[in-house]
């Protein structure tokens, strides 16, 4: 107690100064509008920042609890999803909304996939017993995957786009030009569209769609997005780098397309060749 009084006496004048100055500033902020505004503005700002910081700290703490319940929800949804897919596999869908109504869709599940080899194949769980035959196109919701190569009774191998022999005829949306979509075997996320003449009006970001000229796929299916356009010296056509819309590493459910008009067209082609 005595020390406290000694301290007060020693710093008494400073304390008095602070006290009186505090009274002055209090009066200043309360009774003068511009000072009041500036004071309230900065104190409100400081208040807001402190509050948002403490709120964020609280949020992080609460997020842990949320994660557990979300994990359960995701698990339930996954099981439900698999059940629904198994229901779909029993049904054959006819696509009445697409431009080309001559294709029917059959759902299948991917059992084997690869993207890192220079020639990649995908195995699906439908075969000749379920009505899958070679040269049928295979797609997902996002884009195209490949063409069926070989079939067994209950399984098929699909030659993926990421195969050096794969060739799909594609066009640029809103333009009349078409070319061949090929893969060089190097980068699994990028394929090249060739044979687009250099007077074509192409820009980065344009959508690439199937042209329908190779009868594996109907016309108007989205394939990918133009990522880069380059013109090699002395050539008349662009080499367009396309980023595929679907992620070839993450394939689960695919649809096998059956072309109802394939027989008719094939018979026409045979007549032409025989002439």
């Amino acid at each position: 107690m005595r020390n406290l009084i000694l301290y007060l006496l020693r710093y008494g004048s400073f304390v008095l100064f602070l006290l009186l100055e505090g009274i002055c500033i209090f009066m200043l902020v309360n009774y003068n509008d511009s000072q009041k505004e500036i004071f309230l503005n900065s104190s409100g700002d400081l208040n807001g920042r402190v509050n948002s910081f403490t709120h964020r700290v609280g949020e992080i703490y609460g997020a842990h609890k949320e994660l557990d319940s979300l994990a359960t929800v995701v698990r339930d949804l996954r099981t439900q999803n698999l059940y629904l897919i198994s229901l779909l596999e029993e049904i054959e869908l006819t696509d009445t909304l697409a431009v080309d109504t001559s294709f029917s869709y059959k759902a299948a599940r991917v059992i084997q996939n690869s993207t890192i080899k220079s020639n990649n194949f995908i195995t699906i769980n439908k075969g000749s017993n379920q009505g899958v035959y070679p040269r049928m196109g295979v797609v997902t919701d996002d884009g195209i995957i490949g063409v069926v190569r070989d079939v067994s009774n209950n399984f098929s191998t699909v030659m993926s786009i990421l195969h050096r022999q794969s060739q799909v005829s594609c066009t640029i949306k809103h333009a009349a030009f078409f070319g061949n979509l090929k893969w060089t075997g190097l980068d699994p996320s990028v394929v090249f569209l060739e044979d687009i003449p250099k007077h074509a009006d192409v820009e980065v970001g344009d959508t690439i769609q199937t042209s329908g000229y190779s009868r594996h796929f109907p016309v108007g299916l989205d394939v990918g997005k133009v990522q880069d356009i380059s013109l090699s010296q002395g050539s008349n056509s662009y080499t367009i780098q396309v980023q595929l819309f679907n992620d070839m590493n993450n394939l689960e459910v695919v649809y096998v397309l059956e072309d109802q008009q394939a027989e008719e067209l094939d018979s026409l082609l045979i007549i032409i060749e025989n002439e």
Binding site: S13, F14, F17, L20, E21, I23, C24, I25, F26, M27, L28, V29, N30, Y31, N32
Partner: peptide
């Protein structure tokens, strides 16, 4: 002194604050 001046200048605390500062 500052407070009395403030009263007549209608400035509520500006002169008083400065005067206290200088005095200290």
């Amino acid at each position: 002194m500052g407070l009395m001046i403030d009263y007549l200048y209608s400035s509520f605390g500006m002169h008083a604050g400065a005067a206290v500062f200088v005095a200290y």
